[in-house]
Design a protein around this nucleic acid. Sequence first.
DNA 1: ATTAATCCTATCTAATTGGTAGGAATAATA
DNA 2: TATTATTCCTACCAATTAGATAGGATTAAT
Lengths: 134, 134
Amino acid sequence: MISKRAKYAIKTILFINDHPELAPMSAKLISEKEHIPYKFLENILRDLKSHQLVKSVRGAEGGYTLGKDPEGISIAQIMRIVDGPIALIPCVSERYYEPCSECEDEETCRIRKLFNELRTEMLPVLERSITTLK
Amino acid sequence: MISKRAKYAIKTILFINDHPELAPMSAKLISEKEHIPYKFLENILRDLKSHQLVKSVRGAEGGYTLGKDPEGISIAQIMRIVDGPIALIPCVSERYYEPCSECEDEETCRIRKLFNELRTEMLPVLERSITTLK
DNA sequence: ATTAATCCTATCTAATTGGTAGGAATAATA
DNA sequence: TATTATTCCTACCAATTAGATAGGATTAAT
């Protein structure tokens, strides 16, 4: 299961992308329209900003805009920022790899092999640009 | 990420299936060979038993055997028992469905659509019989 | 000066994860 | 029959994570 944080982050990015006419978009508005607790949303936005997924404008009339071309933003990117690995076990994660403490031989581990295959199936779905979501 | 509980459960089922000559298999042996904390393993086995994935024989020389034909056991089954849903958001889970509290319209939700597609890609991998794992 | 924003640090509560403790019940076998 | 090896059961516990909330400093438009 992904966290609420991740779901909120995805909603936020989609909402900003859907409403270019309201740029820069205030956290208050996002919070109200997407039913995300305001202070929690602030945290999430800070996280997204530190990873360049959004940019901010300070002061009155300020708010957030996407940090890069929406074509280049995927759900996978957002998930990795807020939840960490996409893979379901750490020993098959590319970016967050960690060996399993009790595993005897990673090369022949059937569990690892299966979850590696699983990750391979998952990635293309999650790495599509957010602009392709309908 | 799946829990350690789930990984231990999978290892346990595979180990029992791999060693029919040691049936019934004691928790002590599984614990030692697969490096799973004994008391924790007991919990997991109880859980697997209550879902008919293993059967037990009590007393000295007792232990555990598979609760059904290994052809009929999948990683998905084990994961559902110990971790719950396979789907990454509750609103696309078949067996553990729950609506998203903040969602306005499930039918048109793009996030839901994507994660539903994701689940559809994941299931065939996880629902293969454990006997096919190499 | 006021107001509406972002930014920052810190704190809090509840649930979950990963595990442990202690012992009762059962059955093989010496 | 006593011992031993096992499953079975209830309860507890510590650390971490999830999901926020609090309070205020900073910035900029009006």
